[in-house]
């Protein structure tokens, strides 16, 4: 099986997001980056499991600047065979990113293109569906189980309050949610081997901007907490009803 796993970079989860003084940008001073958890924990690992059971190759792909190579190397250390980075100097919007991935993957006959459920930075859940549309592939979002039998896939996806099971013939694209696989920690041997695995850098294709981020704001800070006597829950109910007006 020929498998492609698209991975993005995101600020480490404990990052306190700060804005630049003019509010136009995120202040990235001191921000540490990681591979987006859904991509690393579930998409990449399920792809590796399929390769281990049925043979094939796992390629990881990132659209981003050269700084992202350390994140890509981590994917290689976890077990991907090779990697591609589509070289852009700045992160751009979902449609631009999807266009780059689609143009790279077109004609390369991947059986499955894996995505994460969403990036934990821009939280769009769009890139995978966009790539699927550009390549005319079926796409299943929020996959929590994937079983293969020859060229036929059975995918379980999360839906509100339940789940849906779908049968579909490859080639397909899907996004990985919690449950699809268990996180793997790279070992020393993997880390050493990753240094020698191929990482191809490809030029981006031109694509116009369809969106632009004009600026950012932060959520309003909460005022100080109102403490309620633990013996007096009638008072809490009264406040929730009369003051907060939520019950």
């Amino acid at each position: 099986m020929k498998l492609l796993v698209c991975v993005s970079k995101t600020p480490e989860t404990t990052t306190k997001i700060q804005l630049t003084a003019d509010g136009k940008n995120i202040d990235t001073t001191g921000v540490q980056y990681i591979m987006n958890p859904y991509d690393e924990w579930y998409a990449l690992v399920r792809a590796l499991e399929l390769k281990e059971s049925a043979g094939g190759t796992v390629t990881i792909l990132n659209v981003g600047p050269a700084d992202n190579d350390s994140i890509i190397r981590k994917g290689l250390a976890i077990g991907a065979d090779d990697a591609v980075r589509i070289d852009v100097t700045d992160e751009k919007d979902s449609l631009f990113t999807a266009r780059q991935i689609a143009e790279y993957a077109r004609g390369k006959d991947y059986d499955i293109i894996f995505f994460g459920k969403e990036t934990i930075s821009y939280n769009a859940s769009e890139v995978g569906a966009m790539v699927a549309e550009f390549l005319d592939l079926p796409y299943i979002g929020d996959a929590i189980a994937l079983e293969m039998e020859g060229g036929s896939a059975t995918v379980t996806r999360d839906i509100e309050g339940g789940e849906e099971v779908i049968e579909v013939a490859t080639p397909i694209a899907l996004s990985a949610a919690k449950g699809l696989a268990e996180q793997r920690i790279p070992n020393m041997r993997g880390i050493m081997m990753a240094k020698r695995k191929p990482l191809e850098v490809v030029a981006a294709v031109d694509y116009p901007d369809t969106t632009r981020i004009a600026g950012y704001t932060k959520p309003e800070e909460k005022g100080s907490v109102k403490l309620i006597d633990p013996e007096n829950m009638d008072e809490l109910v009264r406040l929730l009803h009369e003051e907060a007006k939520v019950i």
Binding site: K16, Y122, N123, D209, T211, T217
Partner: peptide, 14 residues
């Protein structure tokens, strides 16, 4: 919301 609600982005659609 972006960064899982840690901030909000004003996005212009062009």
């Amino acid at each position: 919301p972006v960064f899982s609600g840690k901030a909000f982005a004003d996005v212009q659609l062009l």
